[in-house]
Amino acid sequence: MASASVTLSLCSSLATHSRICTKQHPSPTFSLSNNTYLNSLSFSSHKLSLSSSSSRAFPLLSKSSDSDAAVLESEPGPTEVEAEQIIQISPEQVPKREEVFAVVMIGSRQYIVFPGRFIYTQRLKGANVNDKIILNKVLLIGTRTTTYIGKPVVTNAAVHAVVEEQGLNPKVVVFKYKKKKNYRRNIGHRQPNTRIRITGITGYQDYPAVTLDS
């Protein structure tokens, strides 16, 4: 129970994105299939229900917490009461949104993106703040029921994003030293980056989907 309460309170601190993760739990499909999946491993069911809930909540937490902490000011002292309120509100406010993610390639790096969140990429040259960009190289799209696996890309699929900020990574001290040669170099470096917010994932419906047979 301790872990469950911790996840709840953490969820409540992330105001908007907690709705996504809290929404998952009441869905019957997830809980059923989770149970079957875990029973096949033949652990005890009680322990697994705990661990499964935390594992479902943790990816959303970890991805949102490192990315959203900068923008959303966490509420001081989130309690379980607030979390329960969010749970009650969430089905009404976000009734239709599908849980969908995509793996998109940006400059030879691959990112798992969710609509509504932001990611830091390497600097996109020539992009200005508030530019809308379309990322075409989508390698995989997952929805609640199906997965679209690109070979190597999901054709016609696109991830829409907005450039939010052209910034710099934290400073890195580049200290070079060679012994006995009186050689020292102390250089600071800040790698330029770009923060983009994912607005939507479209165009994947026509691609042949993969659904699990079992």
Partner: peptide, 28 residues
């Protein structure tokens, strides 16, 4: 062989957090 070019970072994250998508990849 299937020309799926997901890198190891993404595959490991899928294996942890998206078990059904990962199962589909293993089946393929």
């Amino acid at each position: 062989k299937e020309n799926i070019q997901l890198n190891r970072k993404v595959l490991s994250e899928l294996s942890m957090h998206e078990p059904y998508s990962f199962k589909a990849l293993v089946d393929i």
